[in-house]
Design a protein around this nucleic acid. Structure first.
Ligand SMILES: [Mn+2]
Ligand SMILES: [Mn+2]
Ligand SMILES: [Mn+2]
Ligand SMILES: [Mn+2]
Lengths: 220, 220
DNA sequence: ATATTTTTTTAGATTTGTCTAAATTTTATT
DNA sequence: AATAAAATTTAGACAAATCTAAAAAAATAT
């Protein structure tokens, strides 16, 4: 089945909001898609007709198994394209999202499976988010945020929980990137900020709000 | 300026028909785009409003300089993507057209320029058609069709003038591909068919209609 | 338990791209 | 030159995706 770019964007947004909130509301979805609540309601009805969504008016909605499956395929495409852009075309990890937002709607399944192979079947995208395999399965990546990383333990940055331009800008300026090796030198209990030493860089301090959005993996 | 996929397809089709016929008609364009003459007229008006087309009703139409420029950028993207699919993702040259038909509408200029660089600035696509550079300039490739290739002269297949699935199927079965080294062994004046010897393959015969659609370059 | 506020849905338009059927213009034929 | 045929355009309709404003339902506060 082939769906319009607009429908695909809705399915993806519902999936993401469902993941974090459990339940999704019309207004939330409208905000996420930068559209109006009325437009959302219109689309919900269409998605229901196509059996991609369970929806009873005023009662809320959630993806059907089929809707979930479609959403995961779009996410797979989005993240593989991002990986391609960063690793093969030397894009910065903070400039690939917009382009992937278009590329994720290219329909050929064969194309994306070949791309996956070409890239060596990567497990996470440049933002540390997991890439579903061709059947839609996601390998959970075990990671802790920096607030929960033990002192003086070398860890590798594996994900960022906030991909806003503001956050990416901050990370760029502090030389924090995916794959960076770092350790916590000190935790300030006054404001929960932490001092970080990144390999080959002077020590820096980041706030609690930043620290809890940076994920890393380390050997125990 | 950003144009819809539909508009881009129209501009590209007009450009191609203009190239071969000089003048393009409403019906021709409708046939090329698999749509109706009435739809074409509708779109011609819109393209005129956007100054991409010179158009007076019942009098014919042709691209403006701006329309031509846009068309060349779409063609550049189409051919670079085809090259990528064949050389990096191991697609057959007969299965890339459809996918490129979608990819050509991805808007990022930076993406396509990075891709061009990644591919080593190729001059022709997998069908032998020239790839415009980032300013829209095309390097003319000097080539003759097989009917005009001298006897017993080794030449390299550099282009195919008909990319229909039927033609591509025939070429596949006869082991003729881009880059094939071949020479004409005999020309049958009865029906203008020719006997071809392709390196590492037994001699084969192709009809006049096929021969005139195969282009090759050779040293004089 | 009412009243108020917030959320969601409907009603009715609008834009883009397409279609069929009919009208108009151009081109070809007697 | 008149007529027939072909090409092109217009008129009017439709589907998809969006919008604003109004109505309806649900949640919250008094
Ligand atoms: Mn998207
Ligand atoms: Mn990402
Ligand atoms: Mn296209
Ligand atoms: Mn081509």
């Amino acid at each position: 089945m082939k769906y319009s770019s607009s429908k695909e964007n809705y399915l993806k947004a519902i999936f993401h909001l469902q993941e974090e909130d459990g339940i999704v509301t019309t207004n939330e979805l409208a905000a996420a898609l930068q559209t109006r609540a009325a437009s959302v309601t219109d689309m919900l009805k269409k998605l229901k007709t196509q059996k991609l969504l369970l929806y009873e008016k005023y009662k809320g909605f959630k993806l059907t198994l089929e809707g979930r499956k479609v959403a995961l395929q779009i996410i797979r495409k989005h993240r593989l394209w991002e990986f391609f852009l960063v690793t093969k075309l030397n894009f910065g990890w903070d400039e690939v999202h917009e382009i992937a937002e278009e590329l994720e709607h290219i329909s050929s399944k064969k194309l994306i499976d070949r791309m996956d192979e070409f890239l060596g079947f990567p497990k996470t995208d440049p933002h540390g988010d997991p890439i579903p395999d061709s059947t839609g399965k996601v390998t959970l990546v075990k990671q802790v945020d920096l607030l929960n990383l033990p002192l003086n333990t070398v860890a590798e940055v594996s994900g960022i929980g906030d991909q806003s331009p503001e956050m990416l800008d901050l990370l760029n300026h502090k030389n924090i990137q995916l794959g960076s090796k770092l350790e916590i030198r000190k935790k300030f209990s006054f404001d929960n900020s932490i001092e970080i030493k990144i390999k080959n860089h002077p020590a820096i301090t980041v706030s609690e709000n930043v620290a809890k959005k940076i994920f890393a993996k380390y050997d125990e």
